[in-house]
Design a protein around this nucleic acid. Structure first.
Lengths: 213, 213
DNA sequence: CGTGGGTTTGACTATACTCAACTACGGTGG
DNA sequence: CCACCGTAGTTGAGTATAGTCAAACCCACG
C-alpha cells in the first residue's frame, strides 16, 4: 500500500519550470492544479497579515503538493530554488481517468499529511539546537546522506529555515555556530554543511517518526 | 469539490465506543482501519523516547483520522474524552466498493492535511498568549461559537493543551490567568471558559487560515 | 573595485521553562 | 454526611533560553 508515483501520470499533466522565488499559487486562490516536484525545492507557506510567515513544508523532488479539496488555497506555494514541476490540471470532466488515478491521489494526500506531521513533531522540540538538528537530519535523510555524516546542500536561505523552524534568524545562525563549535557540523558555506557522525550519547533526539518519504 | 461525508459510508464500517484515555492505535503498528469521530474527542500524538509527547491534532466530531498510506502508523491515537467512533476497516478485497468511495477518502485525507496545516500555523506564533488565543479561537470555531463571545467547553485537560501548543503546563496556566486579567476570557472551571468579545484593536492575530472544516 | 543582500556577531531584554509549594476539586470510604 | 486523599491545576521564585535591535562581516554581483 506504500510507494510513490502510482498512476497519477495518467492524468493530464505537463512540465513547468519556475525560477527562484516565483509564486506558484497564492493562498486564497481557487485551486486549479496540483504539482509534483521533479527538481529544485518549493516552500508551502502561510503569510500573516503582520508580515510574519510560517513555512509549512519544503517540498523536494518526488513530493506532491497543492492537492487541495477546498474552494480556496489555504497556503501559498513558492519556489525556494529554481524548480522543475509536473503540473496536473484539476479536470472536472476527466472523471473516468481520475478514477484510475484515485489511489495515486490518495497516496499523495496521505504523504502530505505525513510530511506535515513530521514537521509538527519537529516544532514540538523547544530547544533551538534540537530543532536545527532535527531539520538537518530531515534534510540529510531526503538527500540520501546516511547517519555517518556527509555533505549537505541547503536549497533554502537562512530566513526560510527560520520561518520553517519558528526561530529568529539570529537564533538560527547562533545555533549553527554552536553546533559547529561542538563539532556536530561543519559550515563550509551558508548553503553547504557537512554533518559529523553523531556523538554516541549526547544526541538530544535519537529517533524520529518513521519517515515514509 | 468541498464537503464531508461523501460516500465513504459505503465502506464496511461499524460504531465503536472508547472510554477516556483508551488507546485506539499505537504508533508503529500496521494500520488496519481508519475512523470518523461521531462524538467525543480524540488526540493524535507522537510519543518521544524521552517521555515528551507532541499532540498533532485534536479530532472532533466529523473528523476522519487514521487514514494512513504507509506500513506503520506514524502516530498514536487516543481518546481524550469518551468517544463514539465509526470504524472503517481497510479491506484489501473490497476494491470495487472502495472505488466508489475514493473521492470521500481523498477528501478526508486532504482535510487532515488542512487540520495539520492549521496547527502548524498556530505553532508558528511564538508568544504563549498568541498560541492560546489561537487555540481558543480554533476550538470556538469548531463548537460553533461565534466571534462575539460565548461559552466554550474544553474536552481535554491542561496537559493535553500544553502538549498541543508546545508550552509548559505552567505557562499555559499563567497565560489563561493573564487573559482573564485582561478581560479576554472568563475561566468558570478548568474545562469551561467563556470567551469575551474581541477587543477591537488589541487582538494579536486578527485572522487565520481559511478554515475548511 | 565598489556595492548590496544575505549572514553573522554583539549587547540587552523579554519570555518561557524548571523546580517547588500550594490550592481546589472529585471520588472514596468511614 | 463528612473527612480524607489523590489528582489536576495554579501560583511563586529563580534561571535559562530565545527574541530584538543594531552593527559588522563577507561573498556575489555589477
Amino acid at each position: 500500500m506504500t510507494g510513490r508515483h502510482h498512476d497519477i501520470d495518467r492524468l493530464v499533466h505537463w512540465t513547468v519550470s519556475v525560477p527562484t522565488d516565483r509564486i506558484i499559487y497564492h493562498q486564497g486562490e481557487a485551486p486549479r492544479a496540483f504539482y509534483r516536484v521533479e527538481a529544485g525545492c518549493v516552500r508551502l507557506q502561510v503569510n500573516r497579515p503582520d508580515g510574519r510567515r510560517q513555512i509549512l513544508a519544503f517540498c523536494l523532488p518526488g513530493d506532491v503538493f497543492g492537492l487541495e479539496f477546498a474552494d480556496v488555497r489555504p497556503m501559498s506555494a513558492e519556489a525556494v530554488a529554481a524548480a522543475r514541476l509536473t503540473r496536473f490540471q484539476f479536470d472536472p470532466d476527466g472523471e473516468e481517468i481520475a478514477q484510475t488515478s484515485m489511489v495515486g491521489l490518495l497516496a499523495a494526500a496521505c504523504e502530505m499529511s505525513t510530511i506535515l506531521s513530521l514537521h509538527l513533531t519537529g516544532l514540538g522540540l523547544n530547544l533551538a539546537e534540537e530543532r536545527v538538528t532535527w531539520f538537518l537530519d530531515w534534510l540529510a535523510g531526503r538527500q540520501g546522506v546516511d547517519g555517518k555524516g556527509g555533505p549537505l546542500f541547503l536549497p533554502m536561505n537562512r530566513q526560510d529555515i527560520s520561518d520553517f523552524l519558528g526561530l529568529a534568524q539570529e537564533t538560527l545562525s547562533r545555533t549553527f555556530a554552536r553546533l559547529e563549535a561542538h563539532g556536530a557540523i561543519n559550515v563550509i558555506t551558508p548553503r553547504r554543511i557537512v554533518l559529523r557522525p553523531r556523538h554516541s550519547s549526547s544526541g538530544p533526539c535519537a529517533d524520529q517518526l518513521p519517515n515514509a518519504a
